[in-house]
Amino acid sequence: MELRGFKNRNATPGYIYFEGEKESQNSWERFKRFSARAVKGELFVGLWIVLREMIKFNIHTVQYPLQKLQMFPRYRAIHKLLRLFESGHERCIGCGLCEKICIANCIKIDTKVDENSRKLVTEYSINFGRCIFCGYCAEVCPELAIVHGDDYEHASEQRAHFGLREDMLTPIDEFKAKKQKEFPGFGALSKDADKFVKKTPLAY
């Protein structure tokens, strides 16, 4: 086993410092930097496009927030935890695959044995301040329990905004009102999925 990780006894995490652009030494250098930044041909290209479309009256602007976009199924916004249609129990079995695959390392799960000696998910959290909405968690989930919703409005006052289980899980009254829809998007099985699996024989 590698012991490398144990040799760093510095308690603060190792920041990497980026030195950045070299500072200008004299006014000639400062002038050169200024002109290189200020005078760019691209500026006029962009201005021309805006002017052209304005004259044509070809306007696509959505009048947000009065008007909102309907997202497509494969859009990846704030996550949802779904319930089983049959029983209303939450689908998550606590396998931890989303926790493992998460490349932003923002998912955490706590589990324990419950009184029926089944695995119980006691807490589930996503740090939305870190989440990059890559969709791997939904894709890897074997139960289609964690999925992406279509709520793209997640501005927050804090950088770290944690989503806990109760925020993401379909509320039970909403579930009873049959408002939970099966998720067709990222991670869901394709319609022809049966064609790609071989059946396991049964001796019954």
Binding site: L3, F6, G94, C95, G96, E99, K100, T111, K112, V113
Partner: peptide
């Protein structure tokens, strides 16, 4: 230990 953690989440300290 049962159902308290997945094996890969644990850091092994020799």
């Amino acid at each position: 230990f049962q159902y308290s953690s997945n094996a890969w989440e644990l850091q092994k300290i020799p």
